[in-house]
Simulated scan of single mutants.
Amino acid sequence: MTPAQNPSGNRLTIDDWLQAGYAILAEDGIKTLKIERLCARLKVTKGSFYWHFDGMPSYRAALVEGWRNLRDEDRSQIEAIGELPPRERLAQMMTSLVSPRHWTLERAMREWARSDDTVADSVRAADRRVLAAVRTAFEDAGFDPDEADLRANATFAVGIGFLHLSGRVPDPGQAAQSERFLDLMLAR
């Protein structure tokens, strides 16, 4: 048996399966994440699914692992922008949250975390790392630790709110709103 091909004629990869799962999670939630729905979305048979995964438990574990890997990449990017001025750092972090690359995944994992403790732990760990970077940016902008903590929490919450208010696709107008919000949060 060989793995199925995607519409472009290339063999499906694990990432193809993961992206399909993240899309289903973001669109309709964990209860709709079924092998049949994944196969229909990718236009392949169940045999292709079982070529890559032993079953739904291993598939779900791969989804969580994919999330962790992306978050590790994010942490590296946050560290790489650590030398930028605080406002630029904050703008890049907010923009990345609703970027096409992250949009579906962020929404999917946050939705799933509402019903799965393992996923919730992963999301919380990722959030703590990002929140620490946001807090540091506010401290670097000259706010005392308590004020930086308050502003970081508010900024993080608004960023997640922008994510959920965006609907099924990212809203291009949110970039301007994010910029105005950062001006407000950095004002003294």
Rank of each mutant, 00 (worst) to 15 (best):
residue 61 A to V: 01
residue 81 I to A: 00
residue 134 V to L: 04
residue 9 G to H: 13
residue 16 D to N: 14
residue 138 F to M: 06
residue 49 F to T: 06
residue 158 V to S: 05
residue 179 E to S: 15
residue 14 I to P: 13
residue 60 R to W: 12
residue 51 W to M: 03
residue 120 A to S: 11
residue 183 D to E: 15
residue 150 L to F: 08
residue 63 L to G: 13
residue 163 L to G: 02
residue 74 D to P: 01
residue 14 I to H: 08
residue 156 F to R: 07
residue 53 F to C: 04
residue 9 G to L: 03
residue 70 L to I: 13
residue 17 W to E: 01
residue 185 M to W: 02
residue 33 L to T: 02
residue 71 R to Y: 10
residue 44 V to M: 07
residue 88 E to G: 12
residue 76 S to C: 09
residue 130 V to N: 05
residue 184 L to I: 11
residue 31 K to P: 04
residue 16 D to L: 15
residue 54 D to N: 07
residue 123 V to W: 04
residue 96 S to N: 12
residue 32 T to E: 15
residue 48 S to L: 08
residue 174 Q to D: 14
residue 155 T to D: 05
residue 33 L to Y: 14
residue 15 D to C: 10
residue 177 Q to K: 07
residue 128 R to N: 12
residue 128 R to H: 11
residue 129 R to Q: 05
residue 168 R to K: 13
residue 81 I to W: 05
residue 96 S to Q: 13
residue 188 R to N: 07
residue 63 L to H: 01
residue 115 S to T: 15
residue 55 G to N: 00
residue 3 P to K: 02
residue 112 W to F: 02
residue 48 S to F: 03
residue 81 I to F: 03
residue 150 L to K: 03
residue 147 E to V: 12
residue 13 T to G: 04
residue 180 R to G: 14
residue 148 A to W: 04
residue 118 T to F: 12
residue 68 R to C: 00
residue 81 I to S: 00
residue 168 R to L: 10
residue 13 T to F: 14
residue 96 S to V: 08
residue 160 I to V: 10
residue 120 A to W: 14
residue 144 D to E: 09
residue 117 D to I: 08
residue 85 P to D: 09
residue 185 M to R: 04
residue 50 Y to V: 15
residue 1 M to R: 08
residue 63 L to D: 15
residue 96 S to D: 15
residue 178 S to R: 11
residue 57 P to H: 07
residue 12 L to K: 01
residue 80 A to Q: 07
residue 54 D to G: 05
residue 128 R to E: 15
residue 22 Y to P: 01
residue 97 L to W: 09
residue 38 L to K: 02
residue 188 R to D: 06
residue 49 F to V: 10
residue 86 P to S: 14
residue 162 F to Y: 03
residue 176 A to F: 12
residue 115 S to P: 15
residue 102 H to A: 09
residue 154 A to S: 09
residue 2 T to H: 00
residue 56 M to A: 11
residue 46 K to W: 00
residue 27 E to M: 07
residue 174 Q to H: 14
residue 57 P to E: 10
residue 160 I to F: 03
residue 156 F to Q: 08
residue 157 A to D: 12
